[in-house]
Structure formats: structure tokens, C-alpha cells
Design a protein around this nucleic acid. Structure first.
Lengths: 97, 97
DNA sequence: TTATATTAGCCAAATATTGACAAGTCATAA
DNA sequence: TTATGACTTGTCAATATTTGGCTAATATAA
């Protein structure tokens, strides 16, 4: 899990404990542990709060968090890359319109 | 919705009615209508069955169906394209390993 | 009008997600 | 060894979301 790995890196490099982050997010430590390990998906607002606490880029963390969800959808699908390409194209079209 | 649009095209070009497809899928017509219009998400097995009934490419329809789900996740997100890129990279790495 | 095709809205059943708790592992200190 | 602290795992109930079907509305054609 890209998001979990990244926030763990950030947390550890700052010498923070899971329970400190968890308290800030108003969830318990086991829950935060699961988020870091990818067993649970963070909510969007939690991502923002984590970015704030860890003084990290909101954009970076959101992108990783979204990427995890995309991966979840396409894993084990032969058409994974094809689907990504189609989505990309479609979004680009929507943007330029 | 890419998937819905495509199956509607295929269905109409073959002169089939929603209720015929719906019967085959063992759902009612309103439900099939919603799938075509994107109000409801088809199940994976329904996608396969639709491909079979419409004599269409299973791969094509699965790709469109996945793309719709990806779009759903990233719509309204500034990091949409960035997230797609990250997911793409990650999947490629997993494939080549 | 009537008949047929499609769509919209609503409801209950089924399913998934969420957060909390208790108990577990692992490493280190006393 | 025991004790402690950090983290992880498993399970549970509460909540939220999704699913499918029903009924009714709309549209289109004969």
C-alpha cells in the first residue's frame, strides 16, 4: 500500500508514535495501525489531517491514497492497464472541454 | 458512463430490447436501464454475460467497466491524473517483477 | 386512445465499512 | 525472568452503502 508505506516513513522519520497520530485523528491505535498497513482505508478527511500532522504535502498523500484505491479495483484484472489508459483519456477530454 | 453507453450502442444496433437483456441477466428491466445509464454498477459476472449476449469482446467491456469505476474514484480530485500515473507505474512494476 | 419501451423513485434485504475492544506478538529494560 | 511499551490481529456491533424489485411516471408509436 503506497499511502500506508509513505505515512509510516514520514511518521518514523519524525519519531512519532502511532498512538499520537491516532489521538489526533480521534481513532484508536489499532485502527491507525491498520491504515498504515493497508488493512483499512483512511477516509479522505483523515488523509488531509495526516498530511497536516506530518507536515507533508496534501497533494502527495491524496495522490497515493487515490492510487491505492485504483489499484484495488484493477488488481487481478487482465485489463488493468487498458482500463487506466481509457480512464486517463476520458479525464483529459473532460478537462479540455 | 463508458460501459453503459457502449452496451446501449451494441444492444440497439442489434435491435434488442432492455427487457430481453434483463431477462438473460435475471434482473428486471428498470435495473438494466439503470446499468445502461450509469445509475447502477453492473457486477463483474453481469459484464461477462452481457458480452456473451451481445457477442462483444469481453475484454473491451471489462476495460470500460473498470474505467468507469476508476473515474468514479478520481472525479473531482485535483490529483486524478497524478494518481492514475502512480497506479500505472506501480502495476507495471508488479508485472515485470 | 392503447400498447410498448424506457426511466424514476422508493423501499427492504443484503452487503460492506467503521470504530472499538480484547488479546496477541515482539523487543527491550529492569 | 518479569514488566513495559509499541504495535498488530481478530472479532464484534453499529452504521452506511449497495442491491434488486416494485410501482408509477414518461415517452413513443400505432
Amino acid at each position: 500500500m503506497l499511502f500506508g508505506e509513505r505515512i509510516r516513513e514520514l511518521r518514523e522519520s519524525q519519531g512519532l508514535l502511532q498512538r499520537q497520530l491516532a489521538a489526533n485523528l480521534e481513532i484508536d491505535t489499532p485502527m491507525f495501525s491498520k491504515i498504515e498497513r493497508g488493512g483499512r482505508k483512511a477516509k479522505r478527511e483523515q488523509v488531509l489531517k495526516i498530511a497536516e500532522i506530518l507536515k507533508a504535502s496534501e497533494q502527495e498523500l491524496l495522490a497515493l491514497w487515490l492510487a491505492d484505491q485504483i489499484k484495488e479495483i484493477v488488481t487481478d484484472e487482465d485489463q488493468a492497464l487498458q482500463a487506466l489508459k481509457i480512464a486517463q483519456k476520458d479525464i483529459n477530454q473532460a478537462n479540455t472541454k
